[in-house]
């Protein structure tokens, strides 16, 4: 049996920023495995992003336990959690949040800088990574000079720079056209299947749903349905059909 990279059990979360606390997640159990593409889907406001943040250790749940490689992470402080994220996670956010004052290469270098890689080596690695996501021609472009699909690939390269075991993406295809979306998913699927990374994707996009190895439907903060396919089909086939 496969060992879970992340296992969350009995996770509930409520936000008490307003006048009355809003319960957003109720008693959720989720396991995330290496080599697998997990999709979190559900209507808007159902708690997908919140769950992703909890699994990615950006947010601590009101109750429940999140284990990372079998270790409880609940007791960790803010800076310890940050160090944990640096070590294990790569994040791709919907608004890619690249530094507008840095070139594509430099944006990727930031991640390597956080990891203590020397400037020169970091530059080489960043260039290799950008070439491998198809941005070899735009290494020194600033984000404002890139299309949204290209920006997203920079964000993916940045997330991959630390060679993370776990990749998390929130609505990675929302801002992309059909083809770029499929390319992005293909890339993420490959990262899971060929490189044994755990990949978790939050999405609304029905076009990409079929590529998940496992799909978890959230509704109103609860798991409504779990679907598993033995191995999701390749988006390349779908692309051929375009």
């Amino acid at each position: 049996m496969k060992r879970a990279v992340i296992s969350a059990s009995g996770v509930s979360h409520s936000f008490d920023t307003g006048p009355t606390p809003v319960t957003v997640l109720r008693d959720i159990d989720v396991e995330v495995y290496a080599g697998e593409l997990l999709m979190l889907v559900g209507p808007s406001g159902s708690g997908k992003t919140t769950l992703l943040h909890i699994l990615g250790r950006l947010l601590s749940p009101s109750s429940g336990v999140v284990m990372l490689y079998g270790k409880n992470t609940q007791a960790l402080g803010e800076e310890e959690l940050a160090a944990l994220r640096l070590k294990y996670f790569g994040f791709i956010f919907q608004a890619y949040n690249l530094f507008p004052v840095l070139t594509a290469t430099e944006n990727v270098m930031v991640m390597l800088d956080l990891l203590g890689v020397s400037r020169q080596i970091a530059r080489e690695r960043a260039r290799e990574l950008l070439k491998s996501v198809g941005l070899g021609q735009r290494l020194d472009s600033f984000p404002s000079q890139l299309s949204s699909g290209q920006r997203q690939r920079v964000a993916i390269a940045r997330a991959l720079a630390g060679d993370p075991k776990i990749l998390m993406a929130d609505e990675p295809t929302a801002a992309l056209d059909a083809e770029s979306g499929l390319r992005a998913i293909e890339l993420l699927q490959m990262l899971a299947h060929q490189q044994e990374r755990a990949v978790v994707i939050v999405t609304h996009d029905p076009r990409i749903l079929q590529f998940g190895d496992r799909v978890i439907h959230l509704e109103d903060g609860q798991i409504a349905e779990r679907l598993a396919t033995p191995r999701g089909p390749s988006p390349l086939h779908a692309m051929g059909a375009l």
């Binding site: 990891l115 690695r125 996501v133």
Partner: peptide, 25 residues
């Protein structure tokens, strides 16, 4: 594509962390 990324990201394992004084980005 996959092989390239594998090459690019797996070549370094050392995670030394950032030191205050190191000239950085």
């Amino acid at each position: 594509l996959g092989k390239e990324i594998g090459l690019a990201t797996r070549q370094f394992g050392g995670r030394s962390g950032v030191a205050w004084m190191r000239p950085s980005l």
